[in-house]
C-alpha cells in the first residue's frame, strides 16, 4: 500500500480565476467540509505538496509560474484543474491574453467541472487524484520517473466528464 494516498498535501494556485473557485477551494478547509479528515493539508510550498490545485485559466503571465510550481513538486504528484476556467479557459477563453486550460502548460490528471466547482466536487476530484497518485507511486519503483503520459491524463478526463 502506498501512504501517499493517506496524506495528500495540497498546493493551491490561482491562475486568472474570478476567485469563485478559490473561495470554494478554501471552503473545503472550513469546518463544514474539513478535508483534514482525509489528511489533506493546504501547504504553501510546492516542495511539500503532492496535489496541485489550479483554478482559473492560463495566461501569458502565469504560464511560467504554473510551470515552475509543477517542476518544483517532487514525484509522485498530480494536477487537479478546478473549475471550467482551469479545464478549458471557460468564459475567459476568448480573451486576448488567455492561452486556455491548465493542460496547455502542464499535464493535468483530473478535471473538476463547474462554475464555480462545488466543494464536494473539488474533494471528489482530489480523491480521484489519489488513485492516480497511487498509480504513479507504483510506477516510480519500476521505471525512471516520468510525468503523466498524455493518454492517461486523457482517460481520466473523459472519466470525470462522463461522471459529471
Amino acid at each position: 500500500m502506498s501512504y501517499v494516498t493517506k496524506s495528500p498535501w495540497v498546493i493551491h494556485y490561482d491562475g486568472s480565476s474570478c476567485n469563485g473557485c478559490d473561495i470554494e477551494v478554501l471552503a473545503c478547509l472550513t469546518p463544514m467540509y474539513d478535508v483534514e479528515r482525509f489528511g489533506i493539508i493546504n501547504t504553501g510550498n510546492p516542495k511539500h505538496a503532492d496535489v496541485f490545485l489550479v483554478t482559473g485559466a492560463i495566461n501569458e503571465q502565469n504560464k511560467g509560474v504554473v510551470q515552475q510550481i509543477y517542476d518544483q513538486m517532487p514525484e509522485p504528484k498530480v494536477v487537479v484543474a478546478v473549475g471550467i476556467c482551469a479545464t478549458s479557459g471557460g468564459i475567459f477563453k476568448e480573451c486576448y491574453n488567455i492561452l486556455g486550460g491548465t493542460d496547455t502548460v502542464i499535464p493535468v490528471d483530473v478535471y473538476v467541472p463547474g462554475c464555480a466547482a462545488r466543494p464536494e466536487a473539488i474533494i471528489d476530484g482530489v480523491v480521484k487524484g489519489l488513485s492516480v497518485l497511487a498509480e504513479k507511486k507504483a510506477a516510480m519503483g519500476k521505471k525512471p520517473v516520468e510525468t503523466a503520459p498524455a493518454a492517461e491524463a486523457a482517460a481520466t478526463e473523459t472519466e470525470m466528464k462522463e461522471e459529471a
Binding site: 501512504y3 493517506k6 496524506s7 483534514e36 479528515r37 489528511g39 514525484e75 509522485p76 507511486k137 516510480m140
Partner: peptide
Amino acid sequence: VGPPILQPFYDVLKLMEKE
C-alpha cells in the same frame, strides 16, 4: 472533526516515499 490519530505517521511514511 480532524484527521485520524495516526495521521502524523502517515505523513512521515508518505514523505519517505517521495522523490
